[in-house]
Design a protein around this nucleic acid. Structure first.
Length: 783
DNA sequence: GATAGGGATCTTTTT
DNA sequence: GATCCCTATC
């Protein structure tokens, strides 16, 4: 190795042998199998820097993609440290962002305009519902259909490519709705998340000339967290960096694949050497992160999975402290205990708040934790990504903005047609929609001649005209104004959204109004960042570019408002600054790729983690003790990997926490300790076998908790649910004939019951001429 | 057509 | 426990 380049030494010096090998790898495909904490991100960023500084690869030739925004942001930060301003020319983003940017440039090839908008989950659901209504389909749940559409998209299949067996009626329905759904999206000049990838793959397939431009440009493609790619993403990669010899570097760990539910296919990483024959394979097996006790525990959990690539993580780190097991009565006690432990750690002085994190399986678990931390005055950051932009009033504001750039977006128009209330009710909307459908035009277009809409009275026509004028004025404004904040400000003014809320006078409306002001603030901040980036770009001399290659930033020429909207759709709110003295709260999924000195993994109970769905998948398809020696279900295997991810985030301290019972859905559940807990040998906790928590406690009968002060001791409608809360179905014989009381319907007798718990559906025969009613159990009192 | 209130339904994880 | 949906009432 010749030290010809002064950068070379600096970029390589603190790397171990395999890391170095990965960074130095020449041309051609490379698979880096990288165990948890083995310096994966470091390898990727060093390699990029090495390509730029030592091999003089233009930064704009490098495409580095990851899965989450957080990971992309972090990678960009690290690259900025290594490359300075040059890092701005790199394309570092998520799959979806990169695809959106390319798709915007090529919009006209796929039947869109450049100002297309991106529909999120709830927009999608609305479109599905409308498509179903139009087609007269009622036999399936919109959610299920949407889910299946998403699956098809993840698998890179358009409606015409769907494989449906002749007798599969539901499949036929899905295909029908899928086709109608796609038509509606195209008509609205909108795409969903899946389209971003699928449309691009389709474009590249049908227009090799377009693809060729990008191939010529991106001579180096790097993918982080490759184990989580789904078929569309992999197809895209293969197009941009075709086998067998492209410069494609994929980095990942099959043990950390946690997005199967989104179509991720572990086989992509397992089979990479077959897809790219001759690919170099480098294994990173030295862990630099976690103390040995933590690694051992993680290994004990993951080793029960069968299909894994051979990897043996080792570490030179000390054994460290044992894991801590926290056992509490319920989720509140658990949260308080976590808060206490955090404060204790902080008091000891070795671990800062900013290097502690609390993980949980599902977002719903965060609330109790937040409460406890707030009460204990522990500063925290909720790493959840989207919450702000998901608020109803903010979504309303976004809908207006999206209409300003793309008035054809029916979903947005329907959302705000009567917000604030302007007297356009359901009937009017329905007539308008029918009219638009009949003519095959967008609602916005239909609004231009409201007098032609059948059956509308004069008042309704007038209101529709007023609404159309508002939208016209806003779209006109958007065309002349170059700033996001300007557009938001104008929109808030003209729509009177804030005014209307303030006029309501309630505290809640007040908060909503403040959120809208904050939304304006977000736009202002966006403009500032954009301006700063423009200044930086201007200060940087433009790279010399061969004329036949397009080296422009992918986002060049995107108007500010559009860029702002895209950021809202794909990125959500920026995470609060890390390292500012706050404990991080997040889901296990959000934790991937991060590390902390101390980690609290909460809710370590069966049905919570592993999640109930995974538990169910196992008992329905396999023998009862499948986890002991049988093949684990794919879902359970993924939970296990998730647990592995959680454990391996911890550097020094790992607190594993569980509660004896917790209320889920407003109903008390007694769950057994998580099987993952029992996979960890007790000495790693520093305790003996007997001290491990036991199976669930005997169940205590409890009332539906509607009336806490009700002292009535009569027979309980949910007696049997509490005895069988998690594994039996049917309240059945236990309650038949039982006298119950309903606030409105009075006293009656139970005829039958369906399900268990406070949410069981109970059929009751009421007196007083009321007759039979189906009621949810929790609305009943023992009578 | 607006509004309020009751009832039903649902929820893993993220782009 | 939030959100959506329906119905009754004004």
């Amino acid at each position: 190795m010749s030290p010809a380049n002064p950068h070379e030494t600096a970029l390589l010096e603190d790397l171990n042998a395999p890391q170095r090998e990965a960074v130095l790898h020449g041309d051609g495909p490379l698979l880096v199998l990288s165990g948890a904490g083995s310096g994966k991100t470091r390898v990727i960023t060093r390699r990029v820097a090495y390509l730029v500084k030592v091999h003089d690869v233009y930064p704009w030739r490098i495409l580095a993609v990851t899965f989450t925004n957080k990971a992309a942001r972090e990678m960009r930060e690290r690259l900025t440290q290594l490359l300075g301003a040059q890092a701005n020319e790199l394309v570092v983003s998520t799959f979806h962002s990169a695809a959106a940017q390319i798709l915007r440039r090529e919009a006209e090839h796929v039947g869109l305009t450049r100002s297309f908008v991106i529909y999120d989950d709830s927009d999608q659901l609305n479109v599905v519902k409308r498509a179903m209504r139009e087609a007269g389909i009622e036999s399936m749940q919109p959610r299920e259909i949407l889910h299946r559409i998403d699956q098809e998209k993840n698998a890179a299949r358009l409606p015409e490519h769907m494989q449906v067996a002749p007798g599969d009626e539901r499949g036929q329905l899905v295909r029908k709705v899928y086709a109608a759904y796609q038509e509606r999206l195209r008509a609205a000049n909108a795409v969903d998340f899946g389209d971003l990838l699928l449309l691009l793959v389709t474009l590249f397939r049908t227009r090799p000339d377009v693809l060729e431009n990008y191939r010529r440009r991106f001579t180096h493609v790097l993918v982080d967290e490759f184990q989580d790619t789904n078929p569309v993403q992999y197809a895209l990669l293969k197009q941009l960096a075709p086998p067998p010899s492209a410069n494609l570097v994929v980095v990942g760990d099959d043990d950390q694949s946690i997005y199967r539910w989104r179509g991720a296919d572990v086989d992509n990483i397992l089979g990479f050497p077959r897809q790219y024959p001759g690919a170099k394979v480098v294994k990173l097996e030295q862990n630099y992160r976690s103390d040995q006790n933590i690694l051992d525990a993680a290994h004990e959990v993951i080793r029960k999975n069968t299909r894994r690539m051979e990897k043996k993580l080792w570490s030179e780190r000390p054994r460290g402290q044992t894991l801590d097991l926290l056992l509490n009565r319920d989720e509140r006690a658990e949260a308080q205990e976590v808060a206490r432990q955090i404060l204790a750690l902080q008091r000891e002085g070795f671990i800062k708040l900013s290097s502690m994190a609390v993980f949980y399986r599902a977002n719903a678990q965060s609330r109790v934790l937040e409460e406890a931390l707030r009460l204990a005055r522990v500063p925290y950051t909720l790493v959840s990504g989207r919450s702000f932009y998901d608020r109803a009033e903010v979504r309303d504001a976004s809908a207006y903005l999206r209409l300003m750039v793309n008035p054809r977006s029916d979903a947005d128009l329907l959302r705000i047609i009567n917000i604030p209330a302007r007297g356009i009710g359901d009937t009017t909307v329905e007539r308008l929609t029918d009219f638009a459908n009949a003519r095959g035009v967008s609602l916005y277009e239909a609004l231009s001649q409201p007098e032609q809409v059948p059956a509308l009275n004069g008042a309704a026509v007038k209101r529709l005209k007023g609404f159309r004028n508002l939208l016209e004025s806003l779209t006109a404004f958007a065309q002349t104004n170059e700033e996001a904040a300007g557009a938001v400000d104008q929109m808030l003014r003209e729509t009177k959204l804030v005014e209307t809320l303030l006029a309501e006078g309630s505290d809640e409306a007040q908060t909503r109004a403040e959120n809208l002001r904050e939304f304006l603030g977000a736009a202002q901040e966006f403009d500032l960042n954009r301006a700063a980036a423009a200044v930086a770009a201007a200060a940087n001399p433009p790279p010399e570019v061969p004329p036949e290659v397009d080296a422009a930033p992918l986002t060049a020429d995107v108007p500010a408002l559009q860029a702002f909207l895209e950021q809202i759709s794909l990125v959500g709110e920026a995470d609060a600054e890390v390292g500012d003295g706050r404990v991080a709260l997040m889901t296990l999924h959000a934790a991937k790729g991060l590390e902390f000195d101390a980690v609290f993994l909460t809710g370590m109970e069966e049905n919570v983690f592993p999640h109930a769905r995974a538990v169910k998948s196992e008992t329905t398809f396999l023998s009862e003790d499948a986890s002991a020696d049988g093949e684990p279900s794919e879902e359970m295997a993924e939970e296990r990997r998730l647990c592995y991810v959680g454990f391996t985030r911890a550097r020094k301290r790992l607190f594993v926490s569980l509660a004896q019972c917790r209320s889920l859905f407003g109903e008390l559940r007694y769950n057994a300790p998580s099987r993952f807990l029992r996979d960890v040998p007790s000495p790693l906790f520093g305790i003996s076998e007997q001290e491990l928590p036991e199976a669930p406690r005997p169940r205590v009968p409890s009332m539906p908790r509607r009336r806490p002060h009700d002292e009535d001791d009569g027979p309980r409608i949910d007696r049997s649910y509490s005895q069988a809360s998690s594994d039996m179905d049917g309240v059945g014989g236990d309650v038949r004939g039982m006298r119950v009381r309903h606030e409105q319907f009075g006293v009656g007798r139970v005829v039958s019951a369906d399900g268990n718990g406070p949410n069981a559906k109970v059929t009751v025969e009421f007196g007083g001429g009321v007759g039979l009613k189906r009621i949810i159990a929790r609305f009943l009192m023992p009578g």
